[in-house]
């Protein structure tokens, strides 16, 4: 193209872009949650440094002791120090939550993408299946699978929770892929020569990542809750492996002895971590769509 004088443009005014209004992306950023969450995770990772006593040691002389100078959070019915147990066990709970989500997300991405690209009948079938999966009370499914696998350990538990948690993410991915697949910029991109991976990387992925991030974060939360509920019911990790869930499984006995610290303290940590995760997730969801109300 030669750079000669341009043709006449009717009614043209010199146009220059309006300076960008600085919409602060920091608005609403959940500082407290992120800081708290990081603090808890770091403490759990650095458990060895923080522990005052061996968390697995059954100090039978000192069982059911209320929080005092020596045992900062008290001891449980078996005599284990709860303070050390929180940090050490937190590792396990967080690990399970993380791994289960990774597994679930991976399954969901594959399933959702295939369903999104598939012909209508296959897509229908796959989505029916996912919906049925979704409406079965998740825990029953986990119970069922866990009963088959026998004694649980961190790995099997992660797998079981992951395998039962993919359905919600998969639905979202499939909807997004279906929608994006026929939008015009994808058509344009393919017209001008974009192959599958180019379209996937440049057009599809950036558009569904933001929608999915929220669900993934929520999935971590669900996984942690599932693990603790399972351990509580006795189907999760055995008592010897300390996690927040297994600590809480002693809680029923605690009721009888009125040892509130066994229930309240691990529970508080659990709830706090989950709240932080939820806040981060909500922030991500809000950041993905901003628009004002017309009402």
């Amino acid at each position: 193209m030669t750079e000669e004088k341009l043709f006449t443009m009717v009614g043209i005014r010199p146009e220059s872009a309006t300076p960008e209004k600085k919409v602060s992306r920091r608005k609403g950023f959940p500082w407290v949650s992120v800081v708290l969450m990081t603090a808890i995770v770091l403490c759990c990772l650095a458990a060895e440094l923080l522990m005052t006593k061996d968390p697995g040691y059954l100090d039978l002389e000192n069982f059911n002791v209320a929080p005092n100078g020596e045992f900062l959070f008290g001891t449980d019915t078996l005599g284990r120090d709860i303070f050390s147990g929180i940090w050490y066990g937190g590792r396990i709970s967080i690990t399970i939550g993380f791994f289960a989500t990774v597994i679930a997300t991976f399954i969901a991405v594959v399933y959702g993408s295939v369903s999104g690209i598939a012909p209508a009948w296959l897509d229908n079938l796959m989505m029916r299946f996912a919906e049925i999966f979704l409406s079965v009370p998740g825990l029953l499914l986990v119970l069922f699978l866990q009963a088959i696998l026998g004694q649980a350990n961190v790995l099997t538990l992660s797998i079981v929770i992951g395998v039962t948690g993919w359905a919600s993410i998969a639905k979202i991915i499939r909807t997004e892929v279906r929608q994006i697949r026929s939008s015009e910029y994808v058509v344009a991109s393919r017209c001008m020569g974009g192959r599958f991976f180019h379209v996937l990387g440049k057009h599809l992925a950036p558009n569904f990542v933001s929608c999915v991030m929220f669900m993934v974060v929520m999935n971590v939360r669900t996984a942690i809750v599932t693990e603790s509920t399972l351990s509580f019911m006795g189907m999760g990790l055995p008592l010897e492996i300390i996690s927040w869930g297994s600590m809480l499984s002693l809680a029923e006995k605690a009721l009888l002895t009125d040892s509130w610290w066994i229930i309240i303290i691990p529970g508080t940590f659990l709830v706090t971590l989950l709240m932080c995760i939820t806040n981060v997730g909500n922030y991500m969801r809000k950041a993905a769509n901003r628009k004002g109300s017309n009402l």
């Binding site: 015009e184 058509v187 991109s189 001008m192 020569g193």
Partner: peptide, 23 residues
């Protein structure tokens, strides 16, 4: 393919949906 994809281009009616909002 290469020749066909570069020497033929299309402009759509709806400019909102023919441009990727995230680019």
């Amino acid at each position: 393919r290469k020749m066909l994809e570069s020497s033929r281009q299309i402009i759509f009616q709806d400019s909102t949906s023919s441009l990727n909002q995230r680019m």
